[in-house]
């Protein structure tokens, strides 16, 4: 059962990620990306990471993709005109991607230690939000505050960038 769900959602994720790359209309790409993020959240659920799955849907499928669609609307992007396809660029890109995939398969398939099924959790009903929150505020308090400063800097930077003219 879990294997079936894993394959359904990971194939959905990979197919819609393929749609992001190959659709010509930016709005279709963005919609495909939303589907890919939601399927990825479902894959997180099969790994018992409920908190990460919820954050994935809220932040990525919600906030980030709304921002993307808003910018596409703002820039009024049309379907891309068919440009002359440069064969060398596609060949180079395909070579790099194909090399990456074959190296990955070679490494993963040569390690028998990776072919283990999920070990059973000692307490299957453990509250993972509590655990992540405890870890975040106890062991990772300084990085947490640094992230807060980073978000502040990003906000100020965006406001500055979207001014009409920079002084």
């Amino acid at each position: 059962m879990q294997l079936v769900l894993f394959w359904i959602f990971s194939l959905l994720m990979l197919l819609s990620a393929m749609g992001v790359v190959f659709f010509r209309n930016p709005v279709s790409s963005a919609m495909s990306l939303v589907l890919s993020f939601i399927a990825l959240a479902a894959v997180f659920v099969t790994l018992d990471a409920f908190f990460i799955a919820v954050v994935q849907v809220l932040v990525y499928a919600g906030a980030v993709m709304v921002l993307f669609l808003f910018i596409i609307m703002l820039l009024d992007l049309r379907e891309e005109k068919r440009r002359r396809v440069r064969l060398s660029a596609w060949l180079g890109g395909g070579l790099v991607v194909g090399g990456f995939i074959s190296a990955l398969l070679k490494v993963v398939l040569s390690l028998p230690a990776l072919f283990v099924t999920k070990p059973a959790m000692l307490y299957p009903l453990v509250n993972d939000i509590e655990q992540v929150g405890f870890n975040l505020f106890r062991n990772f308090n300084l990085p947490f505050q640094i992230i807060g400063v980073l978000l502040l800097v990003a906000t100020v930077g965006v406001v500055l960038l979207s001014k009409k003219e920079l002084k």
Partner: peptide, 13 residues
């Protein structure tokens, strides 16, 4: 049951 290798290959793809 999916193994760790399944997840790593999907993530790599």
């Amino acid at each position: 049951m999916p193994t760790l290798a399944h997840y790593l290959i999907v993530s790599g793809l």
